[in-house]
Computed example of a mutant assay.
Amino acid sequence: MATMNMLQAINNALDIAMAEDEKVICFGEDVGIFGGVFRATSHLQEKHGKARCFNTPLVEQGIIGFANGLAAQGSVPVAEIQFADYIFPAFDQIVNETAKFRYRSGDLFNVGGLTIRTPYGGGIAGGLYHSQSPEAYFTHTPGLKVVVPRNPYQAKGLLLAAIRDPDPVLFLEPKRLYRAAVGEVPEEDYQLPIGEADITKEGTDISVVGWGAQMEVIGKAVELAEEQGIACEVIDLRTLLPWDADTVVESVLKTGRLVVSHEAPLTGGFAGEVAATIQERCFLYLESPIARVTGLDTPFPLVLEKEYLPDHLKIFEAIRESVNF
């Protein structure tokens, strides 16, 4: 075991994947000698050569189009979009090419070896263009997988699983946690299952669901709830597409209550999908309305970032109101 932050865990996963399989190629804006804007790919070019870790032009559509072509020819590309806010120029390539390539060809061709890494979310005072959480746009796209780690251990295990997965994976990295999240990580190769949620804490009174950096915030809210005698069951989805509905259903059948939290705006956010599914499958067991604690339906602000973000106090209040309904 070694103590790593999330960036070091991601770098370690990429190093292992590249050492194991010469078909694994990393590229994106400034990922070569510079190591990317956050240094996630530091020293990979030195170790594996300029042909396997290199810079691209500043053109996101081109990065993913190039990645699709490489993957279709049997390479295993790991493409980095420098910030998730800038993934939208590549949106057409991802949803109309990456996700559909296998199906439009009747499985004669596929780009299943493709992984797209990108930092996302707020908490760094990045303002409108460096703070967004666009996961819900992509969970609406059959043919993709969407994965979000919450700590260094998950980041390494899930990224290695994503690179080796037979389907294209969008790997969203909570940038607020890049250096803030530190933990013990096995130095050897390991994978965590894609599509399986992680119950981080068991409880009987209410289920609280989130993913990524929001899990740390949920943890603080749950501590406040426990001081008032409320036993929370906490679930980290880890994968949003496909998401582990069965684990959440089983939890809500036990607790009768559900709070879902994410940074993205309320309207159209993935919490709505979770809430709708649980309402369909657990309706007669619900003791209170399902609550969503999310960002606001506004562009992501700079000065008012703390007011925008769903913090531990907002989540605690939702837990308390649900239990006292």
Rank of each mutant, 00 (worst) to 15 (best):
N96L: 03
L170K: 00
G195N: 05
S105R: 06
I116C: 00
I199P: 06
G157C: 13
I10S: 01
A67D: 03
V217W: 05
I278S: 00
L14N: 01
V209F: 10
T247I: 11
N151V: 03
Y129E: 13
Y103F: 12
F109S: 11
W243P: 11
G229H: 10
K156E: 13
R150T: 05
I206E: 00
E188Y: 08
E20S: 11
R320E: 14
P242E: 07
E97I: 11
R52D: 11
G28Y: 10
S322A: 15
D236Q: 02
L266A: 04
T115W: 00
Q154Y: 07
A79H: 14
M215D: 05
I10F: 07
A275I: 04
C26E: 02
T239Y: 02
F34D: 06
V185G: 03
A264L: 07
V259Y: 00
G157D: 11
A79C: 09
C26F: 09
Y178H: 08
E187K: 13
R176G: 05
L114Y: 07
A13I: 08
G229S: 15
N324R: 07
I33M: 14
E321V: 05
G183I: 01
D15K: 13
G229E: 08
D92F: 05
G106D: 08
K145L: 03
G219F: 09
Q73Y: 06
G35H: 06
V148L: 08
S75P: 03
L172I: 09
K175A: 12
P149M: 03
T115H: 03
I206L: 12
W243R: 06
L313G: 04
A161R: 09
S251C: 03
H130C: 08
L170A: 01
N324L: 10
L44G: 06
P57W: 08
W243I: 10
F34M: 14
N12W: 01
R320Y: 10
V146L: 13
D107A: 12
V95K: 04
V208N: 00
L266S: 14
G28W: 01
N55F: 13
Q228W: 02
Q214S: 04
E29S: 07
D85K: 11
Q191V: 14
T118C: 04
G269C: 08
F325T: 10
Q228L: 06
E273Q: 13
G113M: 01
G122H: 09
Q45M: 15
R238S: 09
T298L: 15
L313Q: 15
I64A: 00
N96R: 06
G123L: 05
V248F: 02
I16L: 15
A197H: 06
D198A: 10
I278C: 02
P142I: 04
T3N: 12
N11D: 09
L70Q: 10
G65T: 07
A271Y: 11
H130Y: 11
P166T: 03
G49R: 12
H140C: 06
A72D: 08
R179T: 10
P152A: 02
L240W: 06
L224P: 13
L192M: 09
V222E: 08
L128Q: 14
V248P: 15
V76I: 15
I33D: 13
A99Y: 10
N110E: 12
